[in-house]
């Protein structure tokens, strides 16, 4: 009885915090979009808010608004607020996971809903780390946060009540395998965003105007973005590899084979091969960077297929999405 009560309380607490966290993130995205409106009416855009501004302003034209001290200050402040709001979102999300862990009495990554929470959390944290190390990359913020919101929304759709694990998941490997994979996924999220922005920026720099390209009008320079994309992927790829290997070790002890071409395994294989292809293509001088970056996008696509399509449309041993 007490367990049920505690569980209910935790769930309530969790729901409130989740809503708050999501609102924080949404608000951040919304403010990002507000910023350029203020900026362009004041005839100014800030140094710090280029990316957010780019999203809506540049549809109007290619004209780069002049710097103005007043507008700069406002959007500077909004930029800072946005970062703070992301941090609030992260804190709320951590609280969510902690309460869920307490409610279920286990590590909170036993089903798709929880996995997505962890993945987006890592994405948000690695994004904050990136901001700390490379403030110039801040314009990626709009895309990062909107992707986070979309993923969290998707997670909300696959909401599962907190509960104990099915026996197959009851292993120390759960912590190791899922943590590494979710971490890799979160970092790859940042990499994906940066890859998209690079492609847009590259198009913009080679003179393409009009809808998608102009969005990158105020993004960092294309080759800086490209290098950043590579660095992020180079960091995430070993993590992904380790995650898959841990999964294989676990599969050996749970299912009796380290690799059995289960749909989840197939798609992690595909993801891995695409990302490996990206890293190789990037190291090959004869392959253009743009082409290589498309491979990174394919990798992310495969990762998403693995999250959503595989869990719901294919039946396999990894069917833990919900009960």
């Amino acid at each position: 009885m007490i367990t049920i009560l505690a569980y209910l309380a935790a769930m309530l607490c969790y729901a409130a915090e989740y809503a708050f966290g999501a609102r924080g993130v949404v608000a951040r995205a919304a403010q990002r979009e507000l910023a350029p409106v203020g900026g362009s009416s004041g005839g100014a855009a800030s140094v710090d808010d280029r990316g957010g501004a780019a999203a809506s302003v540049d549809d109007l034209g290619d004209e780069v608004p002049a710097e103005g001290p007043g507008g700069s200050k406002i959007s500077e402040r909004i930029g800072t607020a946005a970062v703070l709001l992301t941090a609030v979102g992260v804190v709320a999300q951590i609280a969510t996971l902690v309460t869920r862990a307490v409610a279920a009495g286990r590590v909170p990554w036993g089903n798709l809903y929880e996995f997505l929470l962890v993945l987006t959390l890592v994405g948000a944290i690695s994004w904050l780390v990136v901001l700390r190390l490379r403030p110039a990359m801040r314009p990626l913020g709009l895309l990062v946060t909107s992707l986070l919101v979309v993923l969290l929304g998707a997670a909300g759709m696959v909401y599962t009540q907190a509960g104990p694990l099915v026996p197959a998941l009851n292993s120390a490997w759960l912590r190791i395998h899922v943590t590494t994979v979710a971490t890799a996924g979160g970092v790859l999220l940042v990499g994906f965003v940066s890859a998209v922005l690079y492609l847009l920026r590259e198009g913009y720099e080679s003179g393409k105007a009009g809808f998608p390209w102009a969005l990158a009008g105020r993004a960092p320079a294309a080759d800086a973005l490209e290098r950043f994309t590579f660095r992020v992927h180079a960091f995430a790829f070993p993590l992904l590899t380790v995650g898959i290997i841990c999964g294989a070790i676990w599969a050996e002890s749970a299912w009796g084979r380290y690799w059995g071409w289960d749909p989840k395994e197939i798609w992690s294989f595909i993801t891995w091969v695409f990302y490996a292809g990206y890293l190789h293509a990037r190291a090959t001088p004869s392959v253009r960077r743009r082409v290589a970056t498309y491979l990174a996008l394919l990798g992310w696509t495969a990762l998403m297929v693995n999250q959503f399509i595989v869990n719901y449309f294919f039946t396999g041993l990894h069917s833990y999405a919900g009960n």
């Binding site: 091969v273 490996a276 292809g277 190789h280 293509a281 004869s286 392959v287 491979l295």
Partner: peptide, 10 residues
């Protein structure tokens, strides 16, 4: 060649 390897990987 690297290109072939990449195509095969794909």
């Amino acid at each position: 060649s690297m290109r072939t390897a990449l195509v095969l990987l794909f």
